[in-house]
Amino acid sequence: MTTNNKSITCKKLLFISRHAPYGTSLAKEALDAILAASAYDQNLSLLFMDDGVFQLLSAQDPSDLEQKNFAAMLPVLALYEIENIYVHFESLQARQITINELILDGVQVIDSKTICSLLTQQDQLLSF
């Protein structure tokens, strides 16, 4: 483990959100956690994979469930200066979701291999 000053003050944190919205609170918890973490000036990234990619569908309308709309909440990430947002390509492919169906313009679609190296660059992984 490195102990230089930089690694103490600014850590690279990757939030991995792998669960669909609404069915459980995990997706919402991931979002709350990364927004809260943004107050501490760390290097934050967010990765959607597996059923987590369903959080990005722009057609979401949970008004009948009386739950908050993910499609409405996710654009707020830009206001919190969370700009490293990734989506797992193979997860989209397996679910036949195209990039046009997603809510975030700024998301980077990356494949398994790239995720593998993304993970190795982090100081801390947070799984949701």
Partner: peptide, 15 residues
């Protein structure tokens, strides 16, 4: 109404 969130200071300034 839009984001269903209360903004932090930084987000409020930016918004």
């Amino acid at each position: 109404q839009l984001y269903e969130l209360s903004p932090s200071m930084r987000a409020l300034v930016k918004h």
